[in-house]
Design a protein around this nucleic acid. Sequence first.
RNA 1: GUGGGCGUAGCUCAGUUUGGUAGAGCUCUGGAUUGUGGCUCCAGCGGCCGAGGGUUCAAGUCCCUUCGCUCACCCCA
Length: 416
Amino acid sequence: MQIKAPKGVADILPEDIFRWRYVEDTLRNMLQLAGFDDIRLPMFEQSALFSRSIGGETDIVAKEMYTFSDKGKRSFSLRPEGTASAVRAYLEHRLYIGKPETRLYYIGPMFRAERPQAGRYRQFHQLGAEVFGNDSAFLDAEVIALLMYAFEKLGLESLCLQLNTLGCKDCRPQYQKDLTAFLADHKTGLCSNCMRRSDTNPLRVFDCKNGKCQEVLAQAPSNIDSVCDKCSLHFNQVLNLLKGLNIIFEIKYNLVRGLDYYNKTAFEITARELGAQNAVAGGGRYDGLVEQLGGAPTPAFGFAVGIERLLLLLADKEIKKGEPEWIYLILLGDKALQQGFILQDELRKHGFAVRINSSNQTLKKQLKQANKLDAPLVGIMGEDELNRGCVILRDMRHGTQEELPVAELIDKLGTV
RNA sequence: GUGGGCGUAGCUCAGUUUGGUAGAGCUCUGGAUUGUGGCUCCAGCGGCCGAGGGUUCAAGUCCCUUCGCUCACCCCA
């Protein structure tokens, strides 16, 4: 039996790389416009980093992490997301020193041991961005707007921006308590799924499609009424700023994120076309996390974009490849092959991309191979050309060619 | 972890209902005479029909088991 890639883990093949580059470059450019710096974070961390930040009871930590121990007793985990690492690096290297705020972004693979399905993989790629040290609603709106702009540049339409406020450490616990108490009182009216959820993830109950559950929930305490004045003010400010930028959004009071560290603004950008796993980006504010991981109290806001999901949305889009100029040397006979080999070396040292055909086959066959390789230019050297110190330069796109001295080839290529 | 769908050539798939010699298109290789590619035409290579067991004179086809892929639940990017 052939060894295959693990379930949910995919090769990104050469023929698809240009699509990845297109998406990554577009997002990178957008982030650079807003002063984000690139950071490269490790792909595994001490397990405790994730359980402490994401939350030990969350699905991500409780059942989706790839955890292993090294030769000692230390437990490590492949990162299931990037924010925890970013915060860790921010603290470890004192990236806050000398700056009023710190803006970071990173891009790379994340790992979650879930059952794969459309848009969900065990190794997948995220671009994440984090801002530390700014508690203003202007930041929330700025970053969300930036992301929407990037998606617009990518040519994505019909995306849906959903927002919610999760409250802060002062008002959220009370709401959670109220809601849990309410659900406990009305357990009999709920479906089995919701009964389970009322313990594990109470807010999720609002998502239920069951009509009976919805009837019960109509009486439930509402999130928006329960957040404190400060949170409410912050949220409304974010909404107004977005409106001022003509960004269309909807408020989704049952939007809840699967990571414990979020507070206040939470958002998700979804795409109908994607099927069940329809979130292409998600994020929000996490003002308590830096402190929780041992730093000074530091407000923070961040998001992550799922690259594969973005690529799924762009699957039908024509993306231009950018065909580089290069020359394929067709060499007929041993002497020409020797000369061509040296010429290949010289051309590369002058910065021209070049490959020789060392098969010593007939001209016809070598031309066919040039065609299959999509060579834009071909240099032909046989006995005749060799004797005259010349080479035929053929443009494969137009089918035109000319003969010129080998010495002039380098100059000529510069002008093609 | 739990369900549904699907596994036949490198790729996309017929063939399974009703058991009877393994198929098509694309790709690939060679050819259509001399040192000029793409287009066309001709020929050819390529398969333990996912794997194992069972029924049968006979299994790609029917039965059981198993593995893989995929979609969905859950959750998330």
